[in-house]
Design a protein around this nucleic acid. Structure first.
Ligand code: FES
Ligand code: FES
Lengths: 174, 174
DNA sequence: CTAATGCCGACCAATGAGGTCGGAGACCTG
DNA sequence: CAGGTCTCCGACCTCATTGGTCGGCATTAG
């Protein structure tokens, strides 16, 4: 469905919480889970993976928990999604350079162009540090200067404009 | 896993084939299926949905098949994904404006920023017409002028640069 | 009429996401 | 120092979604 998994969602939620509300204290998984009303055990698993990535420092025992081990500007949402969700490419064929994954590598005609699209999406994801994923909505830094997409009119007549603008967020959930 | 579904992949494949190789003749589903070595029945289902969207004209009977009914610049990959895959938003909460879908709408702190990221991704997808998804790799139009992402150095030190560049396409498939 | 094609719905199988369990180690109490 | 408790940790399980299949019906060229 081209969407973040719950795990990625939880990971971003937790990281944002740690970056904002956990200056230099250990935060228990339970605390975050209750704060956001999400299953604690599943979040625990996510936290483990984040810890294994080296982004969180864990300390067991009572008064234990997790602490953000790196700067909140050194991880991007792309990194998080890739780590916790297992790859964030649009198609399989973009993981391995020699098409060992994708079946129709041999006679696929859209690999090149799609790869380009993929890179653009990855660029977007890779340039939003988790610092910008915080309580504040639409962070000023990102809004104004971080990422801006320039799209000249190209060869697209009226139809494209209509279709593109209509379809920003419009979902049919039958 | 944040990736296009097979159905979207097939749809793009078929549309690209029709745009390139089906100037003004009816193309059978079987032909496309065999060309790309994909299951014919599933592709048929995808074709039906594309036809129902009005993008393909269908004609039953012998010597029947499909024809591209609209200009190859009036549909974008965003449109295709959205139609065939059912919504292309990063999270559920971005479909409905009042959080009727997402559970933790009430105490979610990342909705705003993530929504912004979502819009950027959607922008990318909505500005690539299927004309640019063709046999040619990395179409010149898209490469040079269509979409360009400008990202000034912002507040991100060396770590971000390293992380971002490292993680373009690198998948761990355990 | 007959054959070839699209059209439609129901059906089945496998993958993986979401969720759960019991353990191992570290702090705290006495 | 010993026990209890609280935490992380890794393996396990279940089920919804996706990918894929089948058969029957309508439509049209030959
Ligand atoms: S879809 Fe994998 S090579 Fe085209
Ligand atoms: S994830 Fe849906 S509201 Fe935040």
């Amino acid at each position: 469905m081209l969407g973040l998994s719950k795990k990625s969602d939880y990971a971003l939620l937790a990281l944002s919480y740690l970056a904002t509300n956990g200056e230099s204290r250990t935060v228990r998984t339970r605390e975050i889970a209750e704060r956001f009303a999400i299953p604690a055990e599943l979040l625990a698993k996510v936290m483990q993976r984040l810890a294994k990535m080296g982004w969180l420092a864990s300390s067991p025992g009572p008064s234990g928990g997790y602490t953000l081990a790196v700067s909140d500007t050194s991880i991007t949402v792309g990194d998080v999604v890739r780590a916790v969700d297992g790859g964030s490419a649009l198609t399989q064929c973009m993981h391995s350079p020699e098409g060992s994954d994708c079946e129709q590598w041999a006679n696929c005609t859209i690999r090149g162009p799609l790869g380009f699209v993929n890179e653009r999406v990855q660029d977007v994801l890779n340039h939003i540090p988790i610092r910008d994923i915080r309580e504040r909505a639409t962070p000023a830094s990102a809004e104004s200067e971080l990422v801006s997409i320039v799209v000249p009119d190209h060869s697209a007549p009226a139809a494209v404009r209509a279709g593109a603008s209509r379809s920003h967020n419009e979902g049919d959930t039958p």
